[in-house]
Every structure is written in C-alpha cells, then in structure tokens.
Design a protein around this nucleic acid. Sequence first.
DNA 1: CTGCTGTATTGAAAACTGTCTATTGTTGGA
DNA 2: TCCAACAATAGACAGTTTTCAATACAGCAG
Lengths: 113, 113
Amino acid sequence: MSKQDCCEGLSEAPLAEEQAAELAAMFKALGDPVRLRLLSMIASQPGEVCVCELTPAFELSQPTISHHLKVLRQAGLVDSERRGTWVYYRLRPETTDRLAAVLAASGQPAGVR
Amino acid sequence: MSKQDCCEGLSEAPLAEEQAAELAAMFKALGDPVRLRLLSMIASQPGEVCVCELTPAFELSQPTISHHLKVLRQAGLVDSERRGTWVYYRLRPETTDRLAAVLAASGQPAGVR
DNA sequence: CTGCTGTATTGAAAACTGTCTATTGTTGGA
DNA sequence: TCCAACAATAGACAGTTTTCAATACAGCAG
C-alpha cells in the first residue's frame, strides 16, 4: 500500500510536495475544455469509444485530438487499445475516483469523517 | 436552478461545450502543484488561513504566492477577506464538491445511479 | 503625517501549451 | 505487393503561464 493511496482528502493535511505534483499533473490534464469533453465522451459510453468517433465531434484537426488523447492517457485518465485499423479509448475509473476523493473530502472540517 | 447544477457526472452525457469550458477553468486552477498545496493548506484548516502563514511555506517570492491565490480565487475555489493588515483565505466547498461530483459519477456506467 | 509591515499589481523573461501542416506508422483489402 | 484509411509523431508558431524584481496599495502604530 503506497502512501498516495492512503491519506486522500484535501482537508486531512497539507499535501506533501510529491503528492501535490502527482495530483496536479492529473488535474492539469482535465484543465482543458477539449480534453474534458473528450473524457466525458469516453466516460459516457458504457465500454470504449473509437477515436474515429471522437475526432469528427470537434472542429479541430486529427493530430490535435490525437495529442489531447495522449495527454489524457499519460495522466492515467484513459487507456487505449488498438483493434485492427481502429483505436479505442476507455476510462480508468480508479483515477477519476481518486481525484474525486481528494476533492470530496476537502469540504469536511478535519475529524468529521 | 441553473443547468450547470443539474446534470453533473462525466458519464451521464458528453459535456456541453459551455459546461466543459467552465469546469476546465476550475480544474486548470488545480493543475499546478503550488496551487494544489495552497488549497490543501487552506482546506486542512478548520476556518481560514492567513496569507502570512502560506507565503513562508514555499520557496517562492511573495508576489508569486499572491498570484496563485488570485488564480484560486478567480476559479471560485477560495474566498478571501482582509482583516486589518492581514488577509485570510477560506475554502469554498461548493466548488470542490461540484468538481468531486463530476468526477465521482464518471466511473459508473450510465443508469446505475 | 510618517514610517513600517503585509499584500497586491505591474511588467518582463523564460518555459510551456494548443494548434496546425506535413509526415510517418499500421492495418486490411484488392 | 501496393494502395487507402485511420491514428500517431515531428516540427513550427502564436499565445499563455510561471516566476521574479520593482512598485503600489492598505492598515496600524507612533
């Protein structure tokens, strides 16, 4: 059990520098409207979503979408798999759940949990 | 009741462009290690935290900390109040809660809620 | 009023980001 | 084998972000 998985929640204690850097990298990936929409499109699908379905949903070039998907992948928010010609993306709920947990706890005064 | 307060959860439906922009701005504010640590320091305090307590916790100049606090404030994540010489920051749990809700729902396949 | 302390703003430099075009890599079919 | 379609990478450029030093603003104590 790593330290990161333990003491979640903004209100428990000030984040250590290392944890803050790790979490900030994930939040940063969410900090772009295009990426957030991509993620929501992926998350709102039961299973996976084909890139070929994501790209035409934006008025952006194919490489730009590919770039944003890479950022989401590197942040651990999604996974991708190639099947034949197409590449499919799926959500990694562990990651979004962890971020949600960090934020959800932050409203509680310490000790209420 | 505004539309934003309603349909939260990444998995319910693809985010509208407008909502995505609004949420992304908040996540973006969290997407910096310094700001995340500042927020956690503020959130982990029962009430408010004096800037004079935050600034010396970092090896950064006073204007830099002031700038980051401004970003957090403009994102709606914290509030500030001046009392005498000092300025105090406090968390706005509505905001962190809303972001947590967006992320928390994203793991569930649509219809499970 | 004057000076001191704490906080915010301004302006500038370096680093990073989002986007594009052009190209490359991958896969399946003719 | 060659071609067409889908996706990723490379390189370039404009715009943004992070940081600092310098300065301004606000409140309190003499």
